[in-house]
């Protein structure tokens, strides 16, 4: 992969992971771009939870999105994701849950600059299952937060990101 040479510098640059992920750019080029100032969408959906997507920690993101950050660990949530992801730009993740009355499933990556990747609001007849592909900057825990009957449940799975074979 073309980004093999990036690893050392990228670490120094405190992992500007989007740069890293795409592998299209010299590491560190992004600098201070992580700020939200650059994200100036012409049209912001009223419903789109900007604060949650901008949040820098899992707790803050979950609070902003779901109104509370008190998560109950649950073994009724299964996360299907690779143990080792070769390419952090495309990590397939599926979440299945047996919890009844699921209202939403959120997917977070603990060590991404902005942990919240996606939030799925389920309709009434929709089962507790979603599958998608997300970006990961580095080895991290992938956390699924399930909201059911007003309560929050969570489960995490560690995914190693190797990126072009420079080790995880």
């Amino acid at each position: 992969m073309k980004n093999t040479a990036l690893s050392g510098e990228a670490n120094v640059m405190n992992m500007k992971r989007r740069t890293f992920l795409r592998g299209t750019v010299a590491a560190g080029a992004v600098g201070v771009a992580a700020g939200t100032g650059l994200l100036t969408p012409r049209m912001v959906l009223a419903a789109w939870p900007k604060a949650a997507f901008d949040a820098k920690t899992v707790d803050a993101a979950v609070s902003a999105l779901l109104g509370s950050s008190s998560l109950t660990g649950s073994d009724q949530i299964q996360i299907k994701a690779p143990d080792i992801a070769e390419n952090g730009a495309v990590v397939p993740v599926s979440v299945t849950t047996d919890i009844s009355g699921v209202e939403s499933i959120s997917l977070l990556v603990e060590k991404n600059a902005a942990p919240l990747t996606s939030n799925f609001k389920l309709g009434k007849g929709t089962e507790g299952y979603v599958s998608t592909r997300i970006k990961m900057g580095k080895t991290s825990s992938v956390i699924a937060v399930v909201k059911a009957d007003g309560k929050l449940y969570s489960h995490g799975k560690e995914v190693k990101v190797t990126i072009g074979g420079c080790g995880g």
């Binding site: 919240l116 990747t117 996606s118 799925f120 309709g123 009434k124 592909r133 997300i134």
Partner: peptide
Amino acid sequence: TTVMTAEWGGAVS
């Protein structure tokens, strides 16, 4: 009837 609403950030592939 809406069966799914997905809210995404830039971290979706």
